[in-house]
Simulated scan of single mutants.
Amino acid sequence: MQNTNVILLRHGQCEGGNILRGQVDVGLSKQGELQMKVALAAVFESKNASTSAPDVIISSSLIRCSGPAKAFATSHQLPLFVDDGFKELNFGDWDGKTFDALYQSDAAALDSYWANPWLAAPPNGELMQDFETRIELAWQDMIEQHQGKQILLVTHGGVIRYLMSKVLGVSRCAGFYTSLKLPYAAKVQIDILHDGDTPHLSLNWA
């Protein structure tokens, strides 16, 4: 049997204020840069017995993730792989707009979407089913390529919520996306025990 440990790290606070931030490509604020420095330093200082320093870093291609991931990988001489599959959901016409503006123009559509995001995509956006399938394919490829390693995955809140629901065996639960709060630079760990062809996943949220 073999173990793979994946640390999921959400990006820090971003520029742009209170906007619906899907694939709009904005950088971190000064506060966000500090949050990531603290969070990334803590990865190497973890006292979790099941985790050692990362062997490899995987990052969403959006700059709020790839920027700090590249800097961290360079400073610690770690291999870095940037993967579009771990990008946030594409909110289409809603992407990058303030919540105030959206609720002035599309309140009913937004409320309907948050209640059940699998029924319809945002206008010109990505279906939730396609988003989850995209993450699943990227996840399976990552584990196949880096099985047995300590992996640091720098990504987004929506991606982390999907992966948490996957580990817990929950599907199509809107609460994972609307009620599960993940602060900026939040860290969650998924441990994988490989027993033959069967992986056993557990959520380690210390």
Score class of each variant (00 low, 15 high):
Ser75Leu: 12
Asp84Gln: 13
Ala138Cys: 08
Pro79Val: 08
Ile192Gln: 09
Tyr113Ile: 01
Pro123Thr: 10
Glu132His: 05
Leu62Val: 05
Ile58Asp: 01
Gly148Thr: 09
Asp100His: 13
Ile192Leu: 10
Gly175Pro: 02
Asp84Ala: 13
Ala138Lys: 03
Leu102Met: 12
Leu182Gly: 01
Lys70Ser: 15
Leu80Asp: 10
Leu152His: 04
Tyr113Gln: 03
His76Trp: 10
Thr98Phe: 03
Val154Cys: 11
Asp84Val: 10
Ile151Cys: 02
Lys166Val: 02
Tyr177Lys: 02
Gly158Ala: 09
Ala115Glu: 13
Phe81Val: 12
Ala107His: 12
Phe91Gly: 00
Phe99Pro: 01
Gly158Lys: 00
Pro183Arg: 13
Glu132Asn: 07
Asp83Leu: 06
Val82Met: 12
His156Gly: 06
Glu88Asn: 11
Asn116Arg: 08
Glu136Tyr: 11
Ala71Cys: 05
Thr98Pro: 02
Met164Glu: 09
Asn116Ala: 05
Phe131Trp: 03
Leu80Lys: 10
Ala186Thr: 11
Lys187Pro: 02
Glu126Gly: 01
Met142Lys: 04
Ala53Asn: 14
Leu102Gln: 10
Thr178Asn: 15
Trp118Phe: 05
Val56Thr: 13
Ser66His: 06
Phe99Glu: 06
Gly158Glu: 02
Leu80Trp: 06
Ala71Gln: 11
Asp95Val: 09
Ile57Phe: 04
Gln140Pro: 01
Gln145Pro: 05
Ser59Asp: 07
Ser60Pro: 07
Ser165Gly: 11
Ala109Phe: 06
Glu126Cys: 06
Gln104Val: 09
Ser171Tyr: 11
Leu137His: 14
Ser112Lys: 14
Ala115Asp: 12
Thr133Ile: 09
Thr51Ala: 13
Met142Glu: 09
Asp106Tyr: 08
Ile135Met: 03
Gln104His: 12
Val159Cys: 07
Ala108Ile: 09
Asp111Gly: 05
Val170Thr: 11
Phe81Tyr: 14
Tyr113Cys: 01
Phe81Trp: 10
Gly125His: 01
Asp130Thr: 13
Lys181Asn: 15
Ala71Ser: 12
Lys70Ile: 07
Lys166Cys: 03
Pro123His: 05
Met128Gly: 00
Met164Lys: 11
Gln147Asn: 13
Asp95Leu: 03
Asp55Tyr: 08
Thr133Trp: 12
Gln129Asp: 15
Gly148Asn: 08
Val188Phe: 04
Asp100Asn: 14
Pro79Glu: 12
Pro183Thr: 13
Trp94Asp: 00
Val167Ile: 05
Lys181Cys: 10
Phe131His: 01
His156Lys: 10
Asn124Val: 03
Leu152Phe: 04
Ile190Asn: 03
Pro79Ala: 10
Lys166Glu: 02
Ser179Glu: 15
Lys47Arg: 13
Tyr177Ala: 01
Tyr103Ser: 13
Leu182Ser: 03
His76Ala: 03
Ala138Pro: 00
Leu153Asn: 00
Met128Cys: 02
Tyr103Lys: 15
